[in-house]
């Protein structure tokens, strides 16, 4: 189980990083969303994995760690706000300049970076 979660975090991080390094806004936003998932799961996993023991007080003996859950809950909602703002900025830039590159046009002497 632990292996599944750890590898899932790794796969999402790698995918997110790769997409964040793309040149157009949309894949970058996708990559940031993936990274958000990865980070949220990572934070959540810092409470260690517990099956069948939700932090709802009953007569049960053990509960999972509630603190990371509370942190991640707000993180999920905030990440929506962040995604919305970034999408809006990307959209504004595209509509305004008809260009959805994330990089500034590269100066002439450094043509390899922006135009690649």
């Amino acid at each position: 189980m632990e292996f599944l979660v750890a590898s899932a975090i790794g796969v999402m991080t790698a995918g997110g990083l790769y997409l964040v390094l793309r040149l157009r806004t949309f894949p970058v936003i996708m990559g940031m969303s993936l990274l958000t998932y990865a980070v949220n799961v990572f934070l959540f996993a810092s409470g260690r994995l517990t099956i069948g023991a939700p932090p709802i007080l009953t007569d049960a003996e053990r509960y999972t760690d509630p603190l990371p859950q509370a942190l991640v809950l707000t993180a999920i909602v905030i990440s929506f706000g962040m995604t919305a703002v970034v999408v809006m900025i990307a959209l504004g830039a595209y509509l305004g300049a008809d260009d959805d590159h994330v990089d500034d046009p590269a100066p002439a002497k450094d043509g390899s970076e922006g135009a690649s």
Binding site: E2, F3, V5, A6, S7, I9, G10, V11, M12, T13, A14, G15, G16, L17, Y18, L21, A38, F42, A45, S46, R48, L49
Partner: peptide, 17 residues
């Protein structure tokens, strides 16, 4: 870069889990 980040994240999670 992505693989480096992914493997690191996975290893770190694996270790603390």
């Amino acid at each position: 870069v992505a693989l480096g980040g992914g493997i690191t994240a996975a290893l770190m999670s694996w270790h603390f889990l």
